[in-house]
Nucleic acid binder design. Structure first.
Lengths: 337, 337
DNA sequence: CTGTTAGCGCTTTCAC
DNA sequence: GTGAAAGCGCTAACAG
């Protein structure tokens, strides 16, 4: 592997001159520049970033820590983040925390060790604060995506969870649904909380029947929707919900898959709605009625905020960007009388 | 950010001793080890990887270069690759080449510059050989995924393209289809070629009508299926294909979306099949009849091969892993008489 | 416009 | 068991 000295020798200049050529540094005589560039090409010289980073203290490496790339919502975030990072000359290390706090800790520690310039992350829950503290301690800029953290001031980009929930509930209400169940994740996650609050608020505002029984909370990584379905099956048709609101796409997919297995048909027996599309590609006959969030923009804008902060282009105060959600009515909901 | 010298000073030892403690190096007196560990904890010292890499020549950083994470096929590869990398203590930089050779070159150059230990990649086409040469030149191990490269010997993991195509064609044939169109990508991509060959072979073997007109080749990044659809619309119902084989999922999604816009209904007017699921989550009412490839395993096993090679656990000869495909019959195909 | 010197944070080599 | 010196590949700071 050729070093800067090899190039220097070949071009009959000092290493410093080569360095200047590489970094478009101060004025260099055209003839020497050409000689150096020729030598670079001939030796196929590629600068060693580790050596550069050792001096500059930056690595042009960013970290993207999400729950699971395989979830189309996060896939889009990842794509958006990578696009912006690439645009700005950064590269992206990605990690899947799987909603697991220990995994998150270990990823953050190795990211710090690697000297990443910043991190874009979806914290797995309020416990993540201890991990965020590592970043703060090492003065590593970070931006939160999709989930906020109680008591943590930071740049953040997320969707309008309350309004999104309301849109979903409105849609169900307009279609005649009155008893509406709720399948959700752990309340240590901010958006889960916000969606839950909006759900309860809607029920109160519209004086809908409420039974705690129809609210089901499960782990987002290991979903146990089957027990909820059993509850539905045990209840009489009059008692059980005619519609279910799921607080995320994977949950909804798991629920509906299991319902089908157990002989409950969507939307004929029960309507189902959720946040975020379970499908990356928009198909004319997609199944789920959803409130969609602009996930790509979450990643793209979040990355932009992060890089701005890294490069000192953000003010002292933290920025919060909230995106509107969009209701897309499809086949998983049905009007009832 | 604390350095090894800060720790050394605090523990009253030399930097060398601290280094030995960090790396579980040779014998150290228990008491000094404890003193050093205490200092490390107190200072919250995390070793600087750039400095380590400058000496050791390895980074524990791997690169994943794929076409587009947003394509569910590649999403699964990414997830599989990250899982294995994490298992083995490596981190993953990911990049989207978008089938663009220049982007690919630039990503490979920065990966090399970064000193990655190895690369798992889906080359954008046969031109990628020039990029592969960079890796070879710098002796960076790599494993090919999904696509081979003419004349390049390397570790590789991919699906059985011929057999997959045959499964799809068999299915169409059994459902009465005789005039079968083919929508595909550039022939510089190995699997596109292999699928095309298998398609032609099937037509020949079964003495099906063949008209060059119904084979349409387009760019995989900027698909132009509309012009093909116009061709279909101009033709009489007797002449045009009753089914279309798409060589990949994005192509199929784009085609069907456009067909719907133009008033051609799938499967009522025309059946459509393709390789790879356009949806990451398996839904009971998914649309496409596909031949699915175990994409997660592509990533997981590919990464395993890569790490084995990096760590010198592979033999001299290159390994090729070919996975079987699985036909999944869904709603995009229909029996005709 | 170009070169010299020193040093980033760590580990290898060789002493003791 | 432990340390001192040298150097990995690069660039900041200064000199010329």
């Amino acid at each position: 592997m050729a070093t800067i000295y090899d190039v220097a020798k070949r071009a009959n200049v000092s290493a410093m001159t080569v360095s200047r050529v590489i970094n478009n540094g101060s004025s260099i005589k055209e003839s020497t520049r050409l000689r150096v560039e020729k030598a670079i090409k001939e030796l196929d010289y590629i600068p060693n970033r580790s050596a550069q980073s050792l001096i500059s203290k930056d690595t042009k490496l960013l970290s993207l820590l999400i729950t699971d790339v395989a979830n189309p919502f996060f896939t889009s975030i990842a794509r958006g983040a990578e696009d912006k990072a690439h645009e700005k000359g950064y590269q992206l290390v990605f990690s899947n925390s799987d909603e697991n706090i220990e995994k998150e800790t270990s990823y953050i520690r190795s990211a710090v060790s690697r000297g990443i310039d910043g991190m874009l992350l979806t914290p797995s829950g309020d416990f993540s604060i201890q991990n965020i503290n590592i970043l703060t301690k090492y003065k590593i800029p970070f931006v939160l995506v999709d989930r906020s953290l109680k008591g943590i001031e930071s740049d953040i980009v997320h969707g309008d969870n309350s309004d999104g929930t309301k849109k979903l509930m409105d849609h169900l209400f307009e279609n005649g649904h009155r008893t509406i169940g709720f399948v959700t994740g752990p309340s240590s996650i901010s958006n889960v909380r916000e969606r839950g609050d909006a759900y309860k608020q809607f029920i109160k505002d519209n004086k809908l029947p409420f039974n705690e029984k129809w609210t089901f909370q499960t782990d987002l990584a290991r979903m146990q929707t089957l027990s909820y379905i059993n509850l539905l099956l045990e209840a009489s048709k009059e008692d059980r919900p005619t519609a279910i609101l799921c607080s995320n796409n994977f949950l909804a997919a798991d629920l509906v898959n299991n319902m089908n297995k157990m002989g409950l048909h969507v939307p004929d027996d029960i309507s189902v709605v959720c946040f975020d599309d379970p499908h990356a590609i928009q198909m004319p006959n997609s199944f789920f009625t959803v409130v969609n969030q602009p996930a790509y923009k979450f990643g793209y804008t979040g990355m932009e905020m992060l890089i701005d902060r890294i490069e000192g282009k953000s003010g002292k105060e933290h920025k919060e960007i909230v995106y509107d959600t969009e209701l897309i009515i499809r086949q998983s909901t049905k009007k009832i009388n």
